[in-house]
Design a protein around this nucleic acid. Structure first.
Lengths: 258, 258
DNA sequence: TAGTGGTCTAGACCACTTC
DNA sequence: AAGTGGTCTAGACCACTAA
């Protein structure tokens, strides 16, 4: 009935370790026995013990550090992303700080590294979103967001060049147009953001994403696409993000439509 | 710099096959060369060729059928879930049909199998959501939803027993209270749904979920939690679902808060 | 029955970490 | 230098599919 044989020593060892982790015999961060020891203990080949470890790795239960050992995965606090993260009250603050000098605590809550602003030809989805011809030039602002010293997500925003030219949005110094800062700038330009459309899709990461987000094997990502619109429904920013799934959850509220 | 050695024959073979799949040399549904052939072709051991296949399997690029072969994964159409799926206009229809007889085409668009209604003691999250004591009895309605003959998601709803007793919500025949049917019933009870809160979280499936949803290895799931509230903010239904990530995307729109 | 995927062993070598 | 994870080989056996 079951198409996949779930038996065999490797699966048995994996199951026992999984149980041991689940009931706390191995705490988060604790090191598991070395593969060679597991092999001896269970009377299997090293290869088979390694396979068991690999199964747990794929499930995301453990993380292996090359040359060091296998460790029970530390769970990071989950950040809940609700509509509030776009609240107007938050831009003001950011905006005021943006006028001042770098106060040296930028990375405390949400540090941005690897910020980059480029002018690139629009891919199809960008062109459609912004209502410009395909391959016409658009402003692309990319950044990788860190928390607790680890990357949590990437975000790439697109703007029409004629709208953001000569604004701090073009400034690639970290923190300048970060957070809701761009919203304040757009407001100044007479393009006040009013509504947000968001699309979420979960999938396994590409190898590039595994690299950039330093994802443990077996961790999915959530692709977030958003459209920021003015009261007239005019899209002023189109953005795409890739989030490490284990670090986020999303919260939405809406009235039941007619 | 890179902590994980990504080199080696297995990875090289996986990369070549991945590329071949990506540019269409292997179409969806097509069978890949047998592991033994790959081994011979690349001059590696059978074990290594199998490992390459396993990498692609973990990534979800291919599906293996025991004793038959490895096949490029067929992609299912993605269903977009927006607020519209709760629209009032949709309950009416369902409600009218619910009064009629089973017309035999139930499974055409969205078939529900394995519907089950039970009265169970409330777990903590259920108790909190419905505002009842932990372990007090609540009505639990579980179902697995199919599409194209394959399970796409599970859904478990909770209600207060005194509110839904003697209503079709307690009827475990498939299709009776399915879709928005429960909303119409709640409306009749003077508990008209007005607002929806939804929470989304992506993660890897448990082994149970792999079984029930027949998930290919490497496919994540999305956990959806929702609260259905009346105009007064009273929670009339609390529900949790587990969705096969590859078959859905979610769409939300909201105004920027103050 | 032949073909195929899944698994395992025993031994080997390499790459990285830790001391 | 010692310990550890990652990978590979060559051969073997088992489980399942398809004809």
């Amino acid at each position: 009935m079951s198409p996949e044989p779930q038996t065999g020593p490797a699966n048995r060892i994996a199951a026992e370790l999984r149980a041991a982790i689940a009931d706390g015999r191995y705490q988060p961060g604790a090191q598991l026995p070395p593969v060679r020891d597991l092999a001896k203990q269970y009377g299997v080949s090293r290869n088979t013990a390694a396979k068991a470890i690999n199964i747990l790795r794929t499930e995301g239960a453990i993380v292996t550090r090359y040359g060091s050992g296998a460790y029970v995965r530390e769970s990071h606090p989950i950040r809940t992303l609700g509509p509030d993260r776009y609240a107007r009250s938050k831009w003001q603050e950011t905006r005021v700080r943006a006028h001042g000098e770098d106060d040296g605590r930028e990375k405390e809550q949400q540090g941005t590294q690897a910020q980059e602003v480029e002018i690139v030809p629009a891919e199809e989805d960008v062109a459609v979103a912004l209502g410009v011809p395909i391959a016409s030039l658009v402003v692309e602002r990319s950044r990788t967001v860190f928390r607790d010293g680890l990357p949590t997500h990437t975000m790439v925003s697109y703007y029409r060049p004629e709208e953001v030219r000569d604004t701090p949005i073009m400034d690639d110094r970290p923190g300048m147009a970060g957070r809701g800062g761009s919203f304040a700038i757009l407001t100044d330009l007479g393009l006040a953001p009013q509504d947000v459309d968001e699309k979420l899709k979960a999938r396994m990461p590409t190898t590039d994403e595994v690299d950039v987000l330093r994802l443990p094997p077996g961790e999915p990502v959530v692709e977030l696409t958003r459209w920021i619109k003015t009261a007239e429904g005019y899209v002023v920013e189109y953005a795409k993000g890739v989030h490490a799934a284990s670090r986020f959850e999303w919260l939405y509220s809406f009235p039941i439509p007619d």
